[in-house]
Amino acid sequence: MPGPAPTPPWSGETAALVTQVVDELTRRLARDAPHPPADLVDTAGDARRHALARLRVLRDVRLAVRRLEDQAAHAAAASGAGYPEIGQALSMSRQGARRRWPGLITNSTPTPPSPESRSL
């Protein structure tokens, strides 16, 4: 089994860049929304409506990231990674990864049938 994946030295820089990009994206999507959602139309000011619209966009971003993590975990498992490596990549324990993706890692090595199970 391969050893744990090293943490890249630029991971802090990556997080800062992703934060900046997501912040810009959510502000733009919230600002460019043609109409605020019906439940946000009330006597609240523009700042409140904008902040609530941004929260809705950030919720959608979180769901999208979760789907992308699922896809990447499946690809990692298909490439031979185990729960310890997948957990480490997400800064979680092996058990945490196993709870999030139960059954993701399976022992696909077929076992030969026992002599008792063969029909004559």
Rank of each mutant, 00 (worst) to 15 (best):
P113A: 00
H74C: 14
A72Y: 05
S119A: 15
A44D: 15
V57Y: 01
T111N: 05
A75V: 02
A5H: 01
G3N: 00
A38Y: 04
A38M: 05
A78W: 01
G12M: 04
Q71L: 14
P2C: 03
G103M: 14
A38N: 02
S108E: 09
L52M: 15
A38C: 02
A53N: 06
L40F: 03
D60A: 11
T7A: 11
A15S: 13
I105L: 02
A53L: 01
H74L: 12
P36V: 10
G80S: 10
P36R: 09
S11G: 03
G103N: 02
A73L: 09
S117I: 12
V57D: 07
H50E: 11
V61M: 09
V41I: 05
P102Y: 05
W10K: 03
P9W: 02
A75N: 01
S79I: 04
L63I: 07
P6K: 06
W101N: 13
R31G: 06
G80N: 08
P34F: 12
G3Y: 01
H50L: 14
A76K: 05
S91R: 11
I105E: 01
R28T: 14
D70A: 11
R94F: 05
L52I: 10
T109D: 11
G12Q: 13
H74E: 14
S93K: 05
P34Q: 13
P4K: 08
V21L: 10
E85S: 05
R98C: 13
V41E: 02
R31K: 14
D32R: 14
D23P: 07
E24S: 04
R67P: 00
R94P: 03
T7Q: 15
P34V: 14
S119N: 03
R66A: 14
G45T: 09
